[in-house]
Design a protein around this nucleic acid. Structure first.
Lengths: 217, 217
DNA sequence: CCGGAAGCGATACGATCGTATCGAAATAAG
DNA sequence: CTTATTTCGATACGATCGTATCGCTTCCGG
């Protein structure tokens, strides 16, 4: 049998080239040729890794989503096991991609979200990433809410039990994630400064924290 | 002097064709030819209205922004002059573009936001629209907050005076707008259902309302 | 009534796109 | 070493893009 190459590694390298280009010239500025050049491979190599351009973009968006959620999980693991509040702050701050160093990822994410709004297959991986993040955040909120009052119940889906709870962790998680996304977008187009967005996020987190505290007996 | 045509009307008609196409095939699916066909004019007519394609997109995004803010203002005017709370709810619901009938506008908006993240000139009109909306919302919040305690102070920029107010109208407005934006995006990619997004929005508004109420003496 | 400026729209043009093709190079199995 | 098979990368190809061009038509001012 002839040569054998590391297809997986090459795919990752190409995905990162896609991100670099999507960051610089926008989603439609990503051409196969430029991707190949950035990844330092030939056009043919890209074609052998992905049958079509859409397949390549699909892989790239999944790659970004994985990176973000993984980083969020890492932040979560690095936080003190007690107080889920600070952990929540870290996780959401990570997801919001507000810091300058993650501006590129934010642009890529926004670009893919916009594309996914009109391209159903592209929306799949995006939804998966969002679902994973929402689950993570909801679990953190439930944990923070339960740490002072009733027992854990941190496992399983973000439970909407206990009748009419004063604050539904699932809803709070959706709120937080949507807020983070909106802030990211508004920072990207220059309507908000990074500091303003961070202030908004922190204020909301403080409010959420308060809401959880008063929920305890 | 020869013929004279209604350039402004044609520009608007073309802008609406741009929106229709951006809604159907995404931002990069907008070609000059298709726009001309949709607007029922020739390619040359489009070229006479806008020297370049970017000029056309610029006008289109401004057009959408104007429509949204104008609708928000209309909603505002239609609300009872007292209780700014319900007015706020209406305005924000309008801005969030959650209803099915405005899904197209939402897609267009998202598409332009994504493009603006990498194209500075496109970001200008977008920022203007955001600024106008934020001002409107901030004024409403300030009015609602002041209607029960101190006097109006509804004019001018969304004031951050009075030392350490328990809830800064400017910040609340930014929060609300970012949340609306994030919700819109997440509905568009199918991560949230329209009902879920509306629930989140209403819950947040309820929380804001409560926060304003407790701020009164 | 008529001349000329402005609008018109079909078409041309060059660039760039995604993808297909193909001969040469390379390598693991025999 | 030979050979069969995979990989390589340059190039070709057809489509489509934004824009420029250019006769022809249209219509107001004199």
């Amino acid at each position: 049998m002839p040569k054998q190459v590391d297809y997986e590694g090459r795919r990752r390298r190409i995905a990162e080239a896609v991100c670099l280009l999507a960051d610089e010239h926008g989603p439609e500025g990503v051409t196969v040729r430029d991707v190949a050049a950035r990844a330092q491979v030939s056009v043919g190599a890209v074609q052998r890794c992905f049958r079509t351009k859409e397949e390549m973009l699909l892989f790239a968006v999944g790659h970004v989503g994985e990176r973000v959620t993984e980083r969020a999980r890492y932040r979560l693991a690095g936080s003190p096991a007690h107080s889920a509040g600070t952990a929540l702050g870290h996780v959401v701050a990570e997801v919001a991609l507000l810091r300058e160093e993650h501006r590129a990822e934010a642009r890529v994410w926004l670009a893919f979200v916009a594309k996914a709004a009109v391209s159903e297959p592209l929306a799949g991986p995006l939804r998966s990433s969002y679902a994973a993040l929402q689950d993570l955040v909801a679990r953190l909120i439930a944990e923070a809410a339960g740490s002072g009052s009733a027992g854990g119940s941190a496992g399983g889906s973000a439970g909407e039990g206990e009748g009419a709870a004063p604050s539904d962790p699932g809803r709070e998680a959706r709120t937080l994630l949507a807020l983070a996304d909106g802030l990211t977008a508004q920072v990207l187009i220059g309507h908000l400064a990074e500091a303003e967005a961070e202030e908004v996020l922190h204020a909301h987190l403080a409010g959420l924290w308060e809401r959880l505290r008063v929920a305890r007996p």
